[in-house]
Design a protein around this nucleic acid. Structure first.
Lengths: 196, 196, 196, 196
DNA sequence: AATGAATGAGCTTTCATTCAT
DNA sequence: AATGAATGAAAGCTCATTCAT
């Protein structure tokens, strides 16, 4: 358990699952298709993942944690609250741009979360940390006097919301919106908002 | 074609499909379940809809056009560009709040749009009109001198984005964000942005 | 539910299941094989039976209740306790002889009862009634003075035991034991036992 | 061939197979489970047994030959035919009682004998020797004048039958029948029968 | 001798769709 | 118009067996 080859295989399967789901859609992606794309036999997937559901969960975890890791690293490179907010927004859009498949797959997999409890759980694991992360930055900015005093919780939600909303438009049509323009404009709007 | 009873039946099926999909998730909603919920036989659905895919498309159309109809009506009640923008945002959130099931179903059905062409088509039919609608309002506001001059296309996208993004957070956890607060805050932010 | 065609189909499927399992063995009888033998499609079985397990249960119920029905009827034709005991034994062997397939299938299906609770349940539903039935006869015989006083519970168990034991030998090799001879000998032994 | 380690391994696998099958049922016992229980790798089983079927055969052989060995030894300790019959019956029940798992597994494995030829073969290898063994005792008893003259073949069959039949009732519910009582009663009945 | 990753045939089950009534 | 029995393709999953190490 936890052997090298196991980790490699799991990684390979998750990775192939992402590209395949992004390409054909979750509903049109049986395990056999992922296996075929990965050049392995169907049984291997069942060998490493207890069920399709478990694989899907691991896929979503991977997409979100990779994204989070990148963004956090970029933000950590900034000192000021203002710099951090801008970095968060920039990093979000930049990462999105070079990892479109990940988000294509992610949005597709939302539909696989059906139970109410699962939704709450997904939210708690994925959205809450993002919001909290932004909240902390804003709070620090208010404390240091950089930002005006605002509803931190709500502001964090709205920042995340505009990022996600832009992403959706872009996923449905790459040409509908230019990510770099959106990035710059969002940064501008929120600076205006925070600095009064 | 288009007889009264036919229209009633189709409406009934679409409506039941929405509530059932919202409740159990698209993946867990076979046609037989919709039929059962509607109190009709399975065959009727196939009789009125060429395929499940067609029904799904009609369901999405219905959700989006109902929403659009309501919003447009509210917006039409306003005279100024500023009033119209505020009305658009308010109406969007208000409608969302009383029609949660519709959007639960909608997000669930996104995953059923798999082909690239279908995505472009969905975007063209659903997002583009929204954006254009907002664009027109902004354009009128700029022309009349109400608003400062801004990138109309982008501004429209961002307004729609923040609405959609909030919706997603709310769909995953009703308690994660208060829709009325979000509505008021979004209105405030954008007024600040447009008026200088 | 409970329509005529439903009952016919269920009966047909159960009946075919018995002959197929008797012929090829439970382990070598996928649902597809039963369907093929019955000249219907695989899906029909799932349509009428929730699961393979449910079908198996119904099959065992059918085998045992048919047998019980026949035996009880024969026994009811006798007046004296002695006549009833002999009738029970005779009927058991006679029924066995013309319904070999049923018992081939039954013994094969024993292996499908795995959980401890299921075994107890199977016993309670199938063995207990048989034993109780014999016990009642013996008790009546003792009361009427026909039989000597014996351990009723144990005697009933042993009568059933010798019948079942003979059956097993016969199922494994029809020529290993002559059912009619066994029938007569068992009757003789037990009469000797009961009458002192 | 037949090295010490090989024999130990085979013995270990067969032994573990018995307890595992008795516990979970043959259908729910993949080779991997036996391997796990035995603390060895799956491949070892395939290494020592050509197929699962072969292992099953060896398991049944082991169960039956162990039982036979014990019974024969006990019987050999008796001088008279009467003593030998009583010993056979007693030994059968006593062995059963302390080796319940073996018979749980055995009954479970009956279902794996599917081909007609296999059944005949199983019978020839297992039942016939038992019956012959009893027959010889009875024959000697008749010859020596201990027993009345009876149908030896049939008598042997019935003795084995009642033992097997009691076992089955007991396997399905340990509390349904008391093995010691059954043992004593069976001995009593048959003595009465043989001695006239 | 032993391992356990890998295979793939084969299973049960689901379900969109068809069609006789 | 409506029913629901029937179909059969396709899915997820299990597992005996193989084989490189």
């Amino acid at each position: 358990m936890g052997s090298l080859i196991e980790d490699i295989r799991k990684e390979q399967i998750i990775s192939t699952a992402i590209t395949t789901i992004a390409d054909k859609g979750f509903i049109n992606t049986p395990l056999s298709e992922i296996a075929k794309e990965a050049g392995i036999s169907k049984g291997v997937i069942s060998y490493y993942f207890k069920s399709k559901d478990e694989l899907v969960k691991k896929v979503m975890d991977k997409i979100l944690s990779d994204s989070k890791k990148y963004i956090n690293k970029v933000v950590a490179g900034e000192k000021t609250a203002s710099g951090k907010i801008t970095a968060y927004i920039s990093a979000s859009f930049n990462y999105m741009e070079v990892n479109k498949q990940h988000f294509d797959a992610l949005v597709d997999l939302w539909g696989s979360i059906t139970a109410h409890e699962e939704k709450l759980n997904f939210n708690k694991k994925n959205y809450d940390p993002c919001r909290h992360f932004i909240e902390e930055i804003i709070r620090a900015g208010i404390k240091s006097g950089e930002f005006v005093s605002i509803d931190v919780r709500l502001a964090a939600s709205l920042i995340q919301a505009v990022i996600d909303g832009v992403m959706i438009q872009w996923l449905f049509d790459e040409n509908a919106i230019n990510l770099k323009d959106a990035r710059d404009e969002v940064a501008k709007v929120w600076k205006a908002y925070f600095f009064k």
